[in-house]
């Protein structure tokens, strides 16, 4: 369990939110803070897109994200330093990406 967005949220050992229904914007804000990231509109664009794609059952890769027109890969690294895809996914309340690319 972790205290995120003013409530107790179940997370896995990597700190990823276990139950999608627990996620909200306040949870995202706290997850980002843990990673040293201050969420801006540019971050939200990525997070919202990841959630939307996940909702459609699409497994996201950095390549797909780079080609989405939402963000280019260089910017993605700048927005989420140290983990462009996994940190974005974590903040979006999704599981750790399973793609190797």
């Amino acid at each position: 369990m972790a205290n995120l967005g003013g409530k107790e949220v179940e997370v896995n050992e990597g700190g990823y939110v276990m139950h999608p229904e627990d996620w909200d914007k306040a949870v995202a804000g706290d997850l980002a803070k843990e990673l040293g990231i201050n969420l801006t509109d540019a971050h939200w664009k990525v997070v919202d897109y990841l959630r939307e794609q996940h909702g459609q059952g699409i497994e996201m890769s950095i390549r797909k994200l780079g080609k989405s027109g939402i963000v280019d890969i260089k910017t993605l690294y700048e927005l989420f330093p140290g983990g462009p895809l996994k940190y974005a996914a974590k903040i979006a309340g999704l599981h750790r990406p399973t793609s190797c690319v």
Partner: peptide
């Protein structure tokens, strides 16, 4: 499998620093 070509792969690696 959504894996980039060898050329695009190096583009991605450069973009990632």
């Amino acid at each position: 499998l959504d894996i980039p070509t060898n050329i695009e792969f190096i583009d991605m690696i450069r973009a990632g620093g």
